[in-house]
């Protein structure tokens, strides 16, 4: 493929990766920002969302759009509930101590994975996309006859992938409105900025934490429902999103939601675009190393405030 169309294809793919990443990372960012704990089980909430999407769409049958639409609502709600309950049962009782939370959430990771393996099984299971047309894309080239439109071999995207990008943007806007325009959002942000003061003003911090933990997990599950028609549900699929989301949150700057969005976009896009120039594994080596170097030279993250 020519360089131009190749770059365009890679950018489109990068945008799809970034869209999924931004939802997963937003969930983690909210949890991390408000509760200051590393939730190692976050990737498992993502996996649960994908697995539930498979169950819902298989149980309903009929046109794939029906199952998908129902899964879009049911999976995040169910996963959010599971997370909120586990927060009440476990995290609350260990006072959100950073070290103990790591051990506790690793324990949760084991439990969720093994339970999924025993019920859902070890196979990768696909969920049919509600719609999935291949859209060939044009490219413009200057030649003797002026600007020409051509249809390069292989340059295409599917309607579903475009939908994923659009859906991620919609969710982001909705989340933004929720956090800035609603009372619950305000309480969450207040708790994030200073939980002690919030408590003094009568904010039920414990309940807020459970809601936040549930919301974070629900966002991860939502990302998973969106991704599962492209990838497949598999009981080990949570590891990669966890690491990526974790990285995005830190690169963005702890507690900065705009930073998370920018970082997700940057990492997703660079993942796509660097692959144009290097062989795949080398591209990943370079991308990973660059991410580390961003932090080395800007330890507080892109949008974080320098700690003094």
């Amino acid at each position: 493929m020519e360089f131009g169309p190749h770059l365009m294809l890679a950018s489109l793919e990068g945008a799809v990766i970034a869209s999924i990443l931004v939802l997963t990372a937003m969930g983690l960012s909210i949890v991390f920002g408000v509760m200051r704990v590393v939730n190692v089980a976050h990737g498992e909430f993502f996996m649960l969302g994908a697995v539930l999407a498979w169950y819902v769409s298989t149980a309903l049958g009929g046109h794939p759009a029906i199952g998908f639409a129902v899964a879009l609502i049911v999976a995040p709600l169910a996963v959010g509930l599971v997370a909120a309950v586990s927060d009440q049962l476990i995290l609350k009782r260990i006072n959100y101590d950073p070290d103990r939370t790591i051990v506790g959430t690793i324990g949760m990771l084991f439990i969720i994975q093994q339970t999924t393996l025993m019920t859902f099984g070890p196979e990768a299971r696909p969920v049919e996309a509600p719609f999935n047309q291949r859209l060939a894309l044009p490219w413009f080239e200057f030649s003797e006859g002026g600007l020409q439109m051509i249809w390069p071999w292989g340059l295409s995207i599917t309607s579903y992938k475009l939908f994923v990008i659009f859906a991620a943007l919609t969710v982001l806007v909705a989340l933004w409105l929720f956090l800035t325009r609603t009372k619950i959002g305000l309480i969450m942000r207040a708790t994030q900025q200073d939980s002690e003061t919030a408590k003094a003003f009568g904010v039920p911090v414990g309940t807020v934490y459970s809601c936040v933990f549930g919301l974070g997990a629900a966002l991860a599950a939502l990302g998973a429902v969106l991704v599962v028609p492209i990838q497949q549900a598999h009981y080990l699929m949570g590891a990669d999103p966890l690491l990526m989301a974790f990285t995005v949150v830190i690169i963005g700057g702890l507690g900065s939601l705009p930073g998370t969005v920018i970082a997700a976009f940057l990492i997703g896009m660079s993942d796509g675009i660097i692959s144009v120039f290097f062989s795949p594994t080398l591209a990943q080596i370079i991308a990973t190393f660059l991410v580390a170097m961003i932090l080395v030279f800007r330890p507080q993250g892109l949008m974080g405030k320098a700690e003094t």
Binding site: I94, G107, M108, I112
Partner: peptide
């Protein structure tokens, strides 16, 4: 399902 047991043990232990 020993992973389940290991997971539960970790949760209990950290609590």
């Amino acid at each position: 399902a020993y992973m389940l047991i290991a997971g539960l043990a970790l949760v209990v232990l950290t609590m």
